[in-house]
Simulated scan of single mutants.
Amino acid sequence: MTTREKRFDKVITLLPILGIALFVLFYIIAALFYPEGSYASPNQSGFSLKNNYLCDLLDNRAINGVFNSARTYARIALGILCFSLILFWYQLSKLFDRKNRSQTIMSIAGMLSMLITLFLASGIHDFIIRIAGVFGVIALLISFIELYKANYYKLLLIGIICLLLFLTNYYIYETELLIDILPLIQKVTFLSFISWFILLSVHIYRKLR
């Protein structure tokens, strides 16, 4: 690999971090434009961190039926995030010295999960979440095995915590047990995942130096 190719490779490695930052920016803008309403409080003003789900920003209408002026920014944010994480899963195998077929499956499953997630605003939210979740869990479990074999124990622990948070979200959503606090848990889970993705991207970048 030439010096120019190595530099290009390192720049590409940092793109998921840039994409995550842009996602956060656009989602903050979307939250500011969200008109009103949540399932817990249909007449509330604006977007509530406590009561609104992140997916509420993607819908054509706010919870109370008002036109959702936030949807364009939210959909741009979702598109940026999904393409950034497609790139992330494509590059994750660079973190490991020994290559194997499992890493290829990991990358494909991760990329498929993000590609499917792009369709969250299509009106079949639950179906999309379940299918994307299956591929995502496959990618995560394989990544855990590879992180363990490569002695990245701290990154492995953070990843396991993220997965446990995700499973907690899914359990609450399906059973409606403690459903009132699910919007807040969802945001904690989301922040945990993107923090983990950033840490992994930084480690890949350092690996290529």
Rank of each mutant, 00 (worst) to 15 (best):
A139Q: 03
Y153S: 15
I129T: 08
I138H: 07
L81W: 02
I124N: 13
I86R: 03
Y148D: 02
V188A: 11
F96Q: 04
V188Q: 07
I116G: 00
R71D: 06
D180N: 15
M111T: 07
I138V: 14
I131H: 01
L165R: 12
G79F: 05
V137P: 03
I138G: 05
F67L: 15
A70W: 01
M106R: 00
F166Q: 09
I181D: 04
I179C: 07
L167D: 04
Q91T: 03
L147W: 02
I124L: 05
I185Q: 10
S143R: 06
I105G: 03
I172A: 05
L115A: 15
F88S: 00
F96N: 02
C162V: 08
Q186V: 08
V137W: 00
N169Q: 13
L184Y: 12
Q186C: 09
A132V: 07
Y152R: 14
I172Q: 15
N169F: 06
H125I: 13
L167G: 07
G65A: 12
M111D: 01
Y153Q: 12
A150W: 04
S143E: 06
E176M: 14
I142P: 01
M114T: 05
T117D: 08
D59N: 11
R61Q: 12
A62Q: 09
S143Y: 00
L163C: 07
A74Q: 02
Y152P: 06
Y170V: 13
L165D: 07
L81R: 00
L81M: 11
Y73S: 12
I181Y: 10
G136P: 02
D59Y: 11
Y90S: 04
Y153D: 09
I128E: 05
L87D: 00
N100H: 04
